[in-house]
């Protein structure tokens, strides 16, 4: 049995706050749950808060990149927030620059980013 990461909704945005070190199975499940909820709840944005994560390895890194791609295909935008500086340094050295993933420093800035891009979509 694997744990499940809760997905919250704030308006048209889904918010996932990863609070503990995840097993690979839980990471895969989160990826599937998010894809399903983007469609079911007609979300325009996804925020993944990784403030609590002390490390991001290639497995979690790949999940972040995949969610960003999936959400783009489903007409939503993903922003990863709260990446620690040591995590960013390590990811780059690992060889994962997460080029396709947009990031913001914290939840508030992440929400502001999504708000701006959904408004410009409608204009």
């Amino acid at each position: 049995m694997t744990e499940r990461v809760p997905i919250l909704r704030i308006g048209e945005v889904l918010v996932v706050s990863i609070q503990f070190d995840l097993e690979d199975q839980t990471v895969l499940r989160l990826q599937e749950d998010l894809a399903e909820q983007i469609v079911r709840r007609a979300a325009r944005g996804v925020i993944i808060d990784i403030t609590a994560l002390e490390i991001v390895d290639s497995f979690v890194g790949r999940m972040l990149a995949t969610i960003a791609e999936i959400s783009r295909m489903l007409d939503a935008e993903t922003v990863v927030v709260g990446m620690r500086p040591a995590v960013a340094i390590t990811l780059v050295e690992l060889g994962l620059s997460l080029g396709g993933v947009s990031t913001a420093l914290d939840l508030e800035k992440g929400l502001a980013r999504l708000r701006r891009s959904t408004i410009s979509d409608e204009a």
């Binding site: 690979d24 002390e54 490390i55 497995f59 040591a86």
Partner: peptide, 17 residues
């Protein structure tokens, strides 16, 4: 250091997997 801890844990995570 915090950065070196993070690097070592990440490397260990890759190798354990």
């Amino acid at each position: 250091s915090l950065v070196d801890q993070t690097k070592m844990i990440t490397a260990a995570s890759e190798l354990a997997r």
